[in-house]
């Protein structure tokens, strides 16, 4: 089977600085032009193509990047990731309808709220491992939804209506149906998240997470403050989920507890696993495929989910480590044997 990951890494390593800048800019331009490709084969036959690109595609990508910090990098199984998405969304909904704050002002507040939630969940939960952690996070995801369902302030099952759209930026209006501008804004958030993850992975935090994922006891015995780094993974993962939530609420203008079910957590987890845990490009690809595919094959009507499930099963059998797995390349050994 062709190894896209290694091919990509090879091209990247051989390129000089200007070539790399060119690759990055060209890739960004290609992705940014996606909303303009509505007439091509990419078009989703029944759903509006541009709105599919925003939600679920870009939303899933953003959240998958966030969850990947927790699951892929640090090996902490979080089944309640939707909670942070919900907290970001409800922060936006509440502050957006009750105060004069606009989306850009609420964004950092929503991120902070999600991070804070990650902290309060993480401090007790991260003392546990594996299955136990998974169950606690699963419970947390449900608790957040049920609180929203029962709290008068949060609109109970009716949710919150009339959430404001983002104010114009550089004179560009965020009209409800102009999906492109939302897509491009999300793209900026996604690029920021990629930057953050790549930056952290290359240094101390990345090594600490990697060592924890592979053997937590040994990590601790070799001086890694494991608890602190697990909390960081949780909190940073939550921040990305919170950002996605704020933007989601500001895009759909209406949220209700039904938007934040366990199914979202599972779907995002599927994106991470399907794409290739721990490899950010794999995770992005996984999210794109899993978010886009159901809409692309919508013409199959009833058979749609069956086909989707089949694709998942077949792919996971063919590539159990995901589309673009994590496994790192060893640099050519010949080069090293110069001494």
């Amino acid at each position: 089977m062709i190894n896209l990951r290694d091919k990509g890494a090879e091209v990247w390593e051989k390129s000089g600085r200007p070539a790399r800048v060119a690759i990055v800019l060209a890739s960004i331009a290609a992705v940014a032009s996606l909303p303009l490709m509505g007439g091509t084969i990419l078009n989703t036959p029944i759903a509006s193509y541009e709105s599919v690109l925003v939600n679920p595609v870009a939303m899933f990508v953003l959240m998958a990047i966030g969850l990947n910090i927790v699951i892929g990098k640090s090996g902490l199984l979080d089944l309640g990731y939707v909670a942070f998405f919900a907290i970001g969304a409800y922060t936006m909904a509440l502050l957006g309808t009750r105060t004069g704050l606009n989306t850009w002002e609420i964004l950092p507040i929503g991120i902070a709220m999600a991070m804070f939630a990650g902290l309060i969940l993480g401090v007790p939960a991260l003392k546990l491992r594996g299955d136990y952690l998974a169950i606690i996070t699963l419970g947390f995801g449900e608790i957040v939804r049920i609180i929203a369902l029962n709290l008068e302030t949060l609109g109970r099952s009716e949710g919150i209506l009339n959430i404001p759209t983002p104010p114009p930026i550089f004179g560009v209006e965020y009209a409800f149906d102009s999906h492109r501008i939302y897509f491009w804004t999300l793209l900026v958030l996604i690029l920021l998240a990629i930057w953050m993850v790549r930056r952290l992975s290359a240094r101390r935090a990345g090594r600490a997470w990697e060592s924890i994922r592979q053997d937590e006891d040994v990590a601790e015995l070799l001086g890694v403050p494991t608890f602190r780094y697990k909390i960081w993974a949780f909190v940073l993962g939550a921040s990305v989920g919170g950002a996605a939530g704020v933007f989601y609420a500001s895009k759909t203008l209406y949220i209700a507890p039904d938007n934040f079910t366990l199914q979202i957590s599972i779907l995002i987890l599927a994106c991470v696993v399907f794409g290739g845990m721990g490899n950010i490009w794999g995770v992005i690809l996984g999210a794109v495929v899993l978010a886009y595919l159901p809409d692309r094959i919508r013409f199959l009507s009833e058979a749609r989910l069956l086909v989707f499930g089949l694709v998942l099963v077949i792919m996971m059998n063919l590539r159990p480590d995901g589309l673009l797995p994590r496994k790192k390349r060893e640099k050519a050994l010949v080069v090293k044997e110069k001494s």
Binding site: R207, A208, E210, S211, Q214, D215, L222, V224, R326, E330
Partner: peptide, 18 residues
Amino acid sequence: RLWGDMTSLENVMTATDT
């Protein structure tokens, strides 16, 4: 009990991070 998916250098660097 090494961290198998890390290089030798990364194994040692994780320790020097202490």
